[in-house]
Design a protein around this nucleic acid. Structure first.
Lengths: 204, 204, 204, 204
DNA sequence: AATGAATGAGCCTTCATTCAT
DNA sequence: GATGAATGAAGGCTCATTCAT
């Protein structure tokens, strides 16, 4: 078994390659979001991204590896925005942060709801998923302590876990009519605001 | 209605059929929960339920139809418990109802989390899913108005939609250690309590 | 991972099943012999045996398992005939045994040369192959000691290994014209006769 | 023939081409021997030989053509050594020639056993294979007549065919422990010696 | 001319579903 | 009516071969 073979999952080395990879990831994101990991076929992804099946495998040696790459992409994006939110938190009121968090959650989920599916079900290694969850929990927890510096660590982590629940399921709102969406987002923000305000009050 | 004319042999057969169906649905529930819709095979369901593959198809003509039946069963169960909750709501405080709703959501999801997956992704017709969602929204909305009679209809429906989000995603807690689960459930109850209390205060 | 699933590689339980399996094994034998293990496709075997690909997999869960079954079948056949030869050896002259062994080798190889390929290359587990080789060596060695009782064990095993070489490669003669075949078989018998006679003379 | 017109740059290029081809053939020989014809990929050969896939195809337009070239190379080598053996045969005893032929067969096979596979199964055109076989038969036959000048042509060809059988299958010994190899080689030489001696005796 | 990238064709295997007993 | 067996259609993945730079 000579490992000296051509490595799979190569990084693209030319311009075209990068464009290709981007197209594949886009198609993958869309299809996984629409139909879930298992119901999506590599053939379909290839076809929607204008690639041949085999080309797809040059960059992502397995279906799982594609899912994982998508998850990482999502994670990076989410964690970055979360960090930014945390940075702005000290200057915010609970109401501000509640609104910002809900908006962030919604925007992320509605366009990439698949990530939740990937993160919760097959399509990414257990390890990968746990890493992402832990990282997000960390960031949300940190964000809360930026808002409420006196918040005990344990409490902030518990609260973060609760907020993650909302993060996870808010994408479902995307199916509604725009008017309904606005109402539901406002309602969710209100609930989160109450939650954060109470915690702030208790902590001081 | 000449009951004497009913062939005696019929009854046992029907009886057997019911037992069969029950066994199949049990196996289906278990397997879908364990491995997801796509990863579960009809052969496996047949085998675990002690049925022959072809017999299984006598009752459920497609895999989807089985999933749908399971979803309906789940829905009936959930709606019943929700109705019961609504019936008890008038005598409850917001804190009581918050706790009861969260417990109800968690218990239902942790043992039959597959239903959420089925309801959100493939495995059940769009129509079926929408029906279930609408019915549950109705019940939760009704429950809220039992708790807070003066709550405007529109508001109660919006709040119900928010609570459904929690209902949907709370199953994820089941993966944590028992101690963590307790903390998170308590935390979630607190958030819901604040939400309901505020609504009650505003409505009066 | 519930192992309670339907076991693969089932033994046929009905008349039809047995016929099927026989047809598959026949087609497999032919094709593996003609084109080798890797170059033969399951689709081809299925088609030549009048089965659907998937049916083939009911009985032989992998391509390897089919090869192995074929190898075992071959082995059984060969070992049986070899045992019979050994039983008759005490009453034979070296010339008789030489002729009998060469005829046996040729008849077996010309119609099932694939077994050699399977036994020497991929398509059967290392273990399986070694078992077969060892068993055949044993039988041939035993056969030699039946012919020449005073033959030392070590010598008989070494001679058996040499005879196995002939066994392995004599199938190639099958490509020649019948007249040439006859000559070559006679010639081979002569060489083996000389070999056995010399050993007999030396041992006494 | 104005040699002065030949572009100077040509020579080095051809030189490079030769080196390339040699590297490819070396890698091909190694890999085919290690893993067999089908299991070896062109990409792998390219990679091990430091060539790009497409360059490889410049010299060998198909995988089969590479195999064929390797077979020819092997044939040339074998035929040369055989010719040399034949040249030395007149001065040899049957025992000498038996030993020499067995050693020659073994050394050739153990390092390039793949050639036999190629020669017997896919990977080279029927025609090519027949040519090689015929040529080798010729040489062996000639070698025999050098040893035993009075040997009738027909007999020498028949004997040559028998010796080719040994040539073909002796590579299998390579799998054994060194000690066992020595014993088996000695044993084989003995058989061949008896065969040649008897033929010599009969011919005179 | 040399090479990284692209791909059509096909392989092994699986599974929902339908026959035939 | 129940069941073991059969199968068409597909899915993930690979590879010899050809493009395009």
């Amino acid at each position: 078994m000579s490992m000296a073979q051509v490595p799979k999952g190569q990084q693209p080395k030319r311009q075209r390659g990068h464009i290709r990879v981007a197209a594949i990831m886009k198609a993958g994101t869309e299809l996984f979001t629409e139909k879930g990991f298992e119901a999506t076929t590599m053939t379909e992804i290839a076809s929607r991204s204008g690639t041949a099946t085999a080309s797809l495998y040059r960059f992502f040696p397995t279906k799982e590896s594609l899912a994982e790459a998508l998850l990482v992409q999502f994670a990076r994006h989410a964690l970055d925005e979360l960090a930014e939110l945390a940075a702005r938190a000290p200057a915010m009121t609970p109401a501000d942060l509640a609104a910002a968090f809900v908006d962030f959650s919604f925007s992320l989920q509605s366009e990439r709801r698949f990530a939740v599916k990937l993160a919760e079900a097959g399509g990414a290694s257990e390890e990968q998923r746990n890493l992402l969850r832990a990282a997000m929990l960390d960031r949300v927890s940190k964000m809360l302590r930026e808002l409420i510096p006196s918040l005990p660590m344990a409490r902030s982590r518990a609260m973060a876990a609760v907020l993650m629940m909302i993060f996870r399921s808010i994408g479902g709102i995307g199916d509604q009519r725009p008017a309904a969406q606005r109402v539901l987002l406002a309602e969710t923000k209100e609930m989160v605001r109450l939650y954060l305000s109470a915690a702030a009050a208790a902590a001081n």
